[in-house]
Design a protein around this nucleic acid. Structure first.
Lengths: 337, 337
DNA sequence: CAAACTGGCTTAAACGATTTCGTAGCTTGA
DNA sequence: TCAAGCTACGAAATCGTTTAAGCCAGTTTG
């Protein structure tokens, strides 16, 4: 490998001079700089990130923490979209991405230790499970972090507008004339809590009384459970006219169940999803849903994290709310007249 | 940060002794080792991967290259599954994962340069676009690589059994009595070529003549184009009785088109997908498809790559074929009687 | 009993880069 | 003419870790 030393010998200058020339310091003569740059290119010199990291204590490397309770991990389009855009933005700003995990090889480390071990400058945390103590240890540490969809002690985070999303959906459904709206919701997480609160509040503000049995617990990304919940709702004497699903993918379970019972969407039953994944927009009828702007979230997360890293003094911790978009598909029927 | 130096001072031994004690060298007294290990734990010592990498020339870090022509990137479940399992297996073997990209920050590098820059011990390459010269430069280099779904000059690769997959599908469809099978295929890649060849061969071996207009070009992961192709096939005077789609997701476009024309699946038209993503198995009727075993592929890729890295002498380059599984759903009708 | 060996530790160099502090030589100004 | 200032560069320390080589005392061997 070509190193700075090789260049310095070839050019008859010291290693210090080469380093300065390549890094644009001003105390080197113009001719010398030109010569060094030329020789460096000729010899195929590449800087060594490892050596630089060791000396400077900065790796230009961002850790990404995806903890996966559910088993679907990166397969969830919401997460993979965030990761994809986070990666693009980080790279644009000169940072690489490394996954942070526990237990690398035989050596067992927690997330915080792993981050230090790899000298990551900061970590983006996207996980369902923020109750994990190892995750909390990392967030609470001195390492710059940005958490997605979770706020810890006023630290920087990027949040999807769950309140606004559910509110927009419910308002739209209400405007279409629906008064009996059921909500099949995901497992108990802070996100789910926000959605439930928003659902309650919105309904209350619209003067809607929602009976307890219109709330059905299910899981995210699990069509089977949503299917079961759907069946229970169909069995009610006062069937809802519209069902909200935990997410677009879970809705598939409901869709199948409705079809099995000969209940047509949206004529006999209106439905809405959440997420706005690709799938939702290619189904027919097109699913009414709330699109979470995962691209913007990933991008913002990378941007804020880099800011925290590069201006630790001036970068204020903040919660960035990324609003999504109501996608009016064709699965909520207008029953006004 | 606690370093080896701190421990050495506390224990009254040299840094070399500490390093050896922690790394299990045998020329240190048992008492000394015990004491050093204890003090290290007490002080919260963590090894520094960067320093180690610099000294040893080994980073225990694997690069992952995902190039994305299509724009859907990691969002494609096939890729994200591979990545997920690759990550798990690499970590199990003591390696971290870093994404390799071009153009990090203002400095422009190709993939090979980036890999050297970050001192990655090896790279797993998963991309659609193997014609990219920068990708080829990396594969052809001295850096250990494992490519997915692509063979370069007999180097190690992990391959999905595209030949066997299409063959299995066609045989199954033939056995169900179909003689007019159309094939909507993806864009021109080596994978597509293999599938087309397999389709031709299998049909020939079954004595099936397939007219040219039963082959429709479309794109992977693009329901719209598959929808259009479906429409064209429906307009034919000698309609096929079964349509093969580029992949499960694209099939959605066909599904919609068929429904629009009042063509019911599978009574009026049989269909099959490819990939076996989650979606395919929650749709009703359940999609008949060929499941690519992305988990095994990612796992094998990581395993082989680590082998190439750790035993460069003895690890023979090889092509590992990962076979998938025919998922007999309910979308291919038995029309034998 | 000298030579050879051994266990247990240290010394010092090395990995590749950056940066602080000099300093030699030149120009400038009064 | 000389102090001051500037330009262009170098010496050396440093980041944290590893390892070849050396050393010393004590033990074994011929």
């Amino acid at each position: 490998m070509v190193t700075i030393k090789d260049i310095s010998e070839r050019c008859g200058v010291s290693r210090a001079t080469v380093s300065k020339a390549l890094n644009g310091h001003t105390d080197i003569g113009a001719d010398t700089i030109a010569q060094i740059r030329r020789v460096a290119k000729e010899m195929g010199y590449l800087p060594n990130a490892t050596a630089r990291t060791l000396k400077l204590g900065r790796s230009h490397n961002i850790g990404v923490l995806f903890v996966d309770k559910t088993g679907c991990g990166l397969r969830h389009e919401y997460f993979s979209s965030i990761l994809d855009s986070l990666k693009v933005e980080a790279e644009r700003r000169g940072y690489d991405i490394t996954f942070i995990s526990k237990d690398i090889g035989e050596f067992s480390m927690d997330y915080y230790e792993h981050t230090k071990y790899r000298n990551c400058d900061g970590v983006a945390i996207a996980t369902v499970d923020f109750s994990n103590p190892a995750v909390l240890k990392l967030i609470a540490s001195e390492i710059p972090t940005v958490s997605l969809d979770f706020v810890y002690d006023n630290r920087t985070s990027v949040l999807s507008d769950n309140i606004g999303g559910i509110s927009a959906l419910v308002h739209y459904i209400y405007d279409m004339g629906h008064r009996r709206i059921a909500f099949i919701h995901g497992e108990d997480t802070s996100v789910t809590q926000k959605r439930l609160i928003s659902f309650h509040k919105t309904c209350a503000s619209l003067g809607l009384h929602v009976p307890e049995y219109y709330f059905k617990p299910a899981l995210y990304h699990d069509p089977k459970l949503s299917g079961l919940a759907t069946r229970e709702l169909l069995a009610l004497s006062d069937r809802p006219t519209c069902i909200l699903y935990p997410d677009d993918f879970s809705f598939i379970g409901g869709m199948n169940e409705l079809e099995r019972h000969g209940v047509s969407i949206p004529d006999d039953m209106s439905v809405a999803g959440y997420d706005g994944i690709l799938l939702s927009q290619v189904l027919r009828p097109r699913l009414t849903t709330y699109r979470q702007d995962a691209e913007t979230m990933g991008c913002e997360a990378a941007a804020k994290l880099v800011e925290l890293i590069e201006q630790p003094k001036t970068a204020l911790p903040q919660q960035i709310m990324v609003s999504g978009q109501l996608l009016k598909g064709d699965t909520v029927k207008n029953i006004n007249e």
